[in-house]
Amino acid sequence: MAMRLPSGSAPADQPAEKPSAARILVAEDNEINAAMMATMLRRLGYAVRTAADGAAAVAAVAAGEADLVLMDMRMPVMDGLEATRRIRALPGPEARVPVVALTADALPERVAGYLAAGLDAALAKPIDRDALVATLARLLGRPTPSSPRGAAPA
């Protein structure tokens, strides 16, 4: 079952989600990691949903609920690699939703395997904010919607 964080209320130090913000699905089974990632993404101006396992992530993408997926590679029910394979097998544009591996195992040969399996990029845990921002901008084809510092990265 997907864990969903409240989308209507954001703490005062966070910008409100914009209707035109890219929708990012965070597929992460660790609730603390998912909440931290969701907070970081919301502060950057993205709309965020979470999924607690790969099967829930596939269902969300199939329902057209994501413009990009940040996919933990080790989850219960269905791991990130299998979930990505199933996303790539979906009919229509959902099969082309960018998927980014989130992994503590970021050895070059492992990352090469992820890319060969259909993932678009990989980010090492713990996630570096600048690497995340650059990856999202590249894969979504637009700069970060907003930033706490007021300017989108170049």
Results as ranks from 00 to 15, higher is better:
residue 72 D to S: 01
residue 77 V to L: 09
residue 95 A to G: 08
residue 85 R to E: 06
residue 92 G to Q: 12
residue 95 A to T: 02
residue 79 D to Q: 09
residue 89 A to M: 12
residue 72 D to K: 08
residue 82 E to F: 04
residue 92 G to W: 07
residue 84 T to C: 14
residue 92 G to H: 12
residue 93 P to T: 15
residue 83 A to Q: 03
residue 70 L to W: 00
residue 88 R to L: 13
residue 73 M to K: 05
residue 67 D to Q: 11
residue 85 R to H: 13
residue 85 R to N: 02
residue 64 G to K: 10
residue 90 L to W: 10
residue 68 L to T: 02
residue 76 P to I: 11
residue 79 D to C: 08
residue 74 R to L: 02
residue 67 D to S: 10
residue 84 T to Y: 07
residue 90 L to K: 14
residue 73 M to F: 00
residue 80 G to L: 03
residue 79 D to L: 03
residue 69 V to I: 06
residue 79 D to N: 15
residue 85 R to S: 03
residue 90 L to N: 11
residue 69 V to P: 01
residue 68 L to M: 10
residue 71 M to G: 01
residue 86 R to W: 10
residue 73 M to T: 14
residue 84 T to P: 05
residue 93 P to Y: 08
residue 68 L to V: 10
residue 71 M to F: 09
residue 74 R to C: 00
residue 94 E to P: 00
residue 76 P to L: 14
residue 80 G to P: 02
residue 82 E to G: 00
residue 88 R to T: 12
residue 74 R to N: 06
residue 72 D to V: 04
residue 86 R to S: 01
residue 87 I to L: 04
residue 64 G to R: 11
residue 72 D to Y: 09
residue 64 G to I: 01
residue 72 D to F: 07
residue 76 P to W: 08
residue 74 R to E: 00
residue 93 P to D: 15
residue 86 R to M: 09
residue 78 M to E: 06
residue 67 D to T: 08
residue 88 R to S: 12
residue 78 M to N: 04
residue 79 D to H: 11
residue 87 I to Q: 07
residue 83 A to I: 06
residue 70 L to C: 06
residue 66 A to M: 10
residue 64 G to M: 05
residue 81 L to K: 13
residue 75 M to P: 04
residue 83 A to H: 01
residue 73 M to R: 11
residue 95 A to C: 09
residue 72 D to M: 10
residue 87 I to W: 07
residue 78 M to C: 02
residue 68 L to A: 12
residue 91 P to C: 02
residue 85 R to G: 05
residue 78 M to H: 04
residue 74 R to D: 00
residue 76 P to S: 15
residue 89 A to K: 13
residue 67 D to C: 12
residue 90 L to Y: 08
residue 75 M to T: 03
residue 81 L to R: 14
residue 90 L to S: 11
residue 89 A to T: 12
residue 72 D to Q: 04
residue 68 L to I: 13
residue 95 A to S: 15
residue 68 L to G: 00
residue 95 A to V: 04
residue 94 E to Q: 15
residue 82 E to V: 14
residue 77 V to F: 03
residue 83 A to P: 00
residue 81 L to M: 14
residue 76 P to E: 15
residue 71 M to D: 08
residue 81 L to P: 00
residue 77 V to S: 08
residue 89 A to L: 13
residue 69 V to R: 03
residue 65 E to C: 10
residue 69 V to D: 05
residue 90 L to F: 10
residue 68 L to S: 02
residue 81 L to Y: 04
residue 94 E to H: 08
residue 86 R to F: 06
residue 71 M to R: 00
residue 70 L to V: 07
